[in-house]
Amino acid sequence: MPTDMEAALAGIVRAGRAPGLHGVVVTRGEDLVFEHYGEGPDVAWSGPLGTVTFGPDTLHDLRSVTKSVVALLYGLALARGHVPDPKAPLYAYFPEYRDLAGRTGLTVGHALTMTLGLEWDESVPYTSTANSEIAMETAPDRYRYVLERPIVEDPGTTWRYCGGASALVGGLIARGTGVPLEEFARTALFEPLGITAFEWARGDDGVAAAASGLRLTPRDLARIGRHVLESGSPWVSRMLTPYVTIGEGLDYGYQWYLGPDWVGGFGNGGQRLYLRPDLGLVVVVTAGRYNLPDDHATSATVLDEVVLPAFAPGR
């Protein structure tokens, strides 16, 4: 199986069909069944890194896969009684914004499912403050920036991609636990899984970017994926429940994408965490195709033409 994947990957790389590929990690059960690292230019959330030779210990931006990790952290905080149930009213936990009247219908669950109904636009490149997430990260108060956005749709009805929703979830964790988001992540999730190295970028206000700021090694992201597959916790079941349909054959749970037989997290540039519960399979792909319209083409090609054929029935 590893030989098959190695040959298939070499073929698509040679044909120029996996541009910007930085890393691939495939695990099944406790076994690391395939691993590949490349070399090329990369950037961190905060700036260029130059040409990087990637390896098992190289941290990589997860970009919006961070959101899926934050949703998992929310469940850990909820189990400890630190944060409200998703059915709770959202604005009640941000009492300093009482001046934002008429928003009592918004719940924590609306933030977790990105159905807040707020005006939000991330279609503009992430190099511009015209992008709502970048505007939030450069604002003096990220929570006010999000919470004062105009309501343009009935909450709970329409999915709108919104890094601000993730920021609110991260804020609830930090407020409820009494420690910064990255510190709670370290003690509640990373250290129990044996993850010792990570970075978490901060916005101009000094707050960890819950929407996109986490950096991990591909192996460690795979450990988190394995935890999701095997924990069996009520929260994971709730987190991976389809709450809103966002496309044909594609639903959304609590900050996780849900397909017919897979769940996953996607990040700008081609970052992907892909789980196949039926196969016990965890796949991590990292890439450097940031801000390109086809940024996920490389990770999709690796998944569809290298990894999944190796686990086809009868193999």
Results as ranks from 00 to 15, higher is better:
residue 132 S to K: 04
residue 223 R to D: 06
residue 151 I to S: 09
residue 159 W to L: 05
residue 249 G to S: 09
residue 108 V to E: 01
residue 33 V to T: 08
residue 237 S to N: 12
residue 126 Y to C: 08
residue 122 E to A: 01
residue 141 D to S: 07
residue 120 W to S: 01
residue 61 D to A: 13
residue 305 E to P: 05
residue 218 P to G: 08
residue 81 G to E: 08
residue 302 V to L: 08
residue 262 W to T: 10
residue 171 G to M: 09
residue 3 T to W: 14
residue 226 R to K: 10
residue 266 F to E: 09
residue 309 P to M: 05
residue 78 L to V: 02
residue 190 F to G: 01
residue 133 E to G: 05
residue 287 A to M: 06
residue 221 L to W: 02
residue 188 A to Q: 08
residue 116 L to R: 04
residue 171 G to C: 11
residue 90 L to Y: 03
residue 61 D to V: 07
residue 67 K to S: 09
residue 45 W to K: 02
residue 42 D to T: 05
residue 287 A to Y: 01
residue 151 I to W: 02
residue 90 L to E: 01
residue 127 T to E: 13
residue 208 A to R: 03
residue 222 A to G: 04
residue 131 N to I: 08
residue 265 G to I: 05
residue 219 R to K: 14
residue 294 D to M: 07
residue 147 L to I: 14
residue 272 R to H: 08
residue 41 P to R: 12
residue 8 A to R: 15
residue 176 G to P: 13
residue 118 L to Y: 04
residue 62 L to H: 03
residue 227 H to Y: 15
residue 72 L to G: 00
residue 193 L to P: 11
residue 191 E to K: 12
residue 61 D to L: 12
residue 245 T to H: 14
residue 234 P to W: 13
residue 291 N to K: 00
residue 70 V to K: 03
residue 274 Y to M: 07
residue 164 G to C: 09
residue 14 R to T: 10
residue 59 L to F: 11
residue 259 G to D: 11
residue 261 D to C: 04
residue 22 H to R: 15
residue 109 G to V: 01
residue 290 Y to I: 07
residue 174 A to V: 10
residue 84 P to N: 01
residue 67 K to W: 02
residue 104 T to L: 06
residue 160 R to A: 07
residue 287 A to K: 00
residue 71 A to F: 02
residue 229 L to R: 08
residue 166 S to R: 03
residue 124 V to S: 04
residue 70 V to S: 01
residue 231 S to H: 09
residue 220 D to C: 04
residue 209 A to C: 10
residue 127 T to A: 14
residue 129 T to G: 06
residue 240 L to Q: 10
residue 51 T to E: 11
residue 135 A to Q: 05
residue 12 I to T: 11
residue 230 E to N: 07
residue 245 T to R: 15
residue 80 R to C: 12
residue 246 I to H: 03
residue 262 W to R: 04
residue 223 R to H: 07
residue 314 G to D: 13
residue 201 A to D: 03
residue 278 D to H: 14
residue 23 G to T: 06
residue 170 G to I: 09
residue 172 L to G: 00
residue 213 G to L: 06
residue 190 F to N: 02
residue 230 E to A: 12
residue 162 C to M: 12
residue 262 W to Y: 14
residue 7 A to V: 15
residue 228 V to D: 02
residue 213 G to Q: 02
residue 58 T to C: 00
residue 33 V to W: 12
residue 297 A to H: 10
residue 112 L to V: 12
residue 86 P to I: 04
residue 218 P to R: 00
residue 131 N to R: 07
residue 120 W to Q: 05
residue 315 R to Y: 11
residue 270 G to R: 01
residue 173 I to K: 13
residue 64 S to D: 11
residue 209 A to L: 15
residue 144 R to K: 07
residue 253 G to N: 10
residue 83 V to R: 01
